[in-house]
Design a protein around this nucleic acid. Structure first.
Lengths: 139, 139
DNA sequence: CACAGTTATATCGTATCACGACATATATCC
DNA sequence: GGATATATGTCGTGATACGATATAACTGTG
């Protein structure tokens, strides 16, 4: 059992966990403001990334996206609809299953995601050392 | 300049960033469900942690919490009011500045935060290796 | 020592977004 | 081919952070 004694929490344990959360929260604030600067909602940005970074062999469908973004199926569908209306993704009917829609980025979606992904990679490079240090203190 | 060429993004870069976000998102899902199991909203949990883990010399006030949680001052005040109503924190008037309220955990808040913090430490121990591996791929 | 500016917090109405409940269409399996 | 499962869509609701605004208290300055 890797779990340590519950009574063993020190002030430093709380402070380290608080700092870890604060650091991650700061990263997400960065991410959200970067997305909004590009005219996207944060959720739309995450959708684009989930579509582009989908690990499977083919293009993801709405259910894949729901799983990737921890959403209910119909919430994922709503997000896809909003993002499609913004011209960033499009749905193509799956030829082998008429219930499903395969998702792909539009050229506009591809462009904006590229810019955002570069910015995020840079930001993570800046944060990496602190993050690893905190993880070492926490584990 | 640490920034790499914007055109240098590969499929793997997108996939790695997507996996990184998915891993962190999963951690937050774990955190939120743990908080709700204890009868707290996720925001209330973060408030407790920010109070308990506050780095400064004294107890934090509402503005400190706003900064720690990336909230506007009045949103932090609303969160404190809700959490105080739940009996998890209390406000004590600062004797040297009647505008401020210093925040402290109640015994109930202390107990629930302790349980949650232990659980989070364990979860982070589980995730640490994957997280560090992904950070290495991303930077 | 008034008063201008700043700081700390509170009130209220609004907007966003994911959700539950429900509905529909298609596929699959005895 | 009828029952069941899967994929997605519609609609109303609730939670909560926010902007705009307000109030109170502190601080420095002349």
């Amino acid at each position: 059992m890797p779990r340590r004694d519950r009574t063993a929490l020190s002030d430093a344990d709380y402070a380290n966990l608080a700092r870890f959360r604060h650091l991650l929260h700061g990263f997400f604030e960065f991410s959200e403001s970067a997305a909004r600067r590009e005219g996207l909602t944060p959720a739309q940005h995450q959708l684009l990334l989930a579509v582009r970074g989908h690990p499977g062999p083919g293009a993801p469908n709405v259910s894949d996206i729901a799983a990737a973004l921890f959403l209910k199926h119909h919430s994922a569908g709503e997000l896809v609809a909003r993002t499609e209306a913004a011209g960033l993704v499009h749905r193509v009917a799956d030829p082998s299953d008429a219930r499903q829609h395969r998702l792909a980025l539009t050229d506009a979606g591809e462009a904006v995601l590229g810019a955002l992904t570069s910015a995020h990679r840079d930001e993570l490079t800046r944060l990496r050392t602190d993050l690893i240090g905190l993880l070492a203190d926490l584990g």
